[in-house]
């Protein structure tokens, strides 16, 4: 799922820190804005916009962090509104709902662990590409040279 590969160049200390921060940003926002799934997306988006003109390594990891948030956003938003409808309307708790919440939890947890791992690795200057998101980032984020 997670692939450590060689980046086009060896990133400097400062770059590695910034790139790592983009993952940390989503983690912090994830904890702070737990009930509202949109918060961590907004946080990574702000960080992405701030580093749009950064170096290739920083841009690349900001993009991967942002993209990885998108899919969890869909899963969590659906779960969030489902929960709201159970609390405030006639919807009741069903097997379907509980199974969905558990699936969402598993996906969130996987993402959470992967994010921590990536944050640690990028801090060391190691380039980590995720399954699917890594390729997608390669497609979107091009080196300027």
């Amino acid at each position: 799922m997670i692939n450590v590969s060689k980046f086009a160049y060896l990133p400097g200390e400062h770059e590695a820190e910034k790139a790592s921060n983009s993952y940390l940003m989503s983690l912090i926002a994830f904890i702070a804005g737990l009930p509202l799934p949109i918060i961590n997306l907004i946080a990574t988006l702000i960080f992405y916009l701030g580093n749009r003109k950064g170096t290739y390594f920083v841009r690349w990891h900001c993009t991967q962090a942002l993209l990885s948030q998108l899919s969890v956003l869909f899963i969590n938003s659906f779960g969030f509104w489902w929960t709201i409808s159970i609390i405030f309307t006639d919807e009741i708790i069903t097997d379907k709902y509980i199974a969905y919440i558990i699936t969402a939890l598993i996906f969130n947890l996987t993402e959470f662990i992967a994010t921590i791992y990536t944050a640690v690795q990028t801090r060391k200057g190691i380039h980590v590409e995720w399954w699917f998101y890594g390729n997608l980032t390669n497609l979107i984020c091009k080196s300027e040279s």
Partner: peptide, 22 residues
């Protein structure tokens, strides 16, 4: 790869659905 993530999501939901959680 994208499709397989979606399939994986629905597959896990489906598998978990077999259990009578309620």
């Amino acid at each position: 790869q994208g499709l397989s993530i979606i399939v994986l999501f629905f597959a896990s939901w489906f598998v978990l659905l077999q259990i009578n959680w309620v």
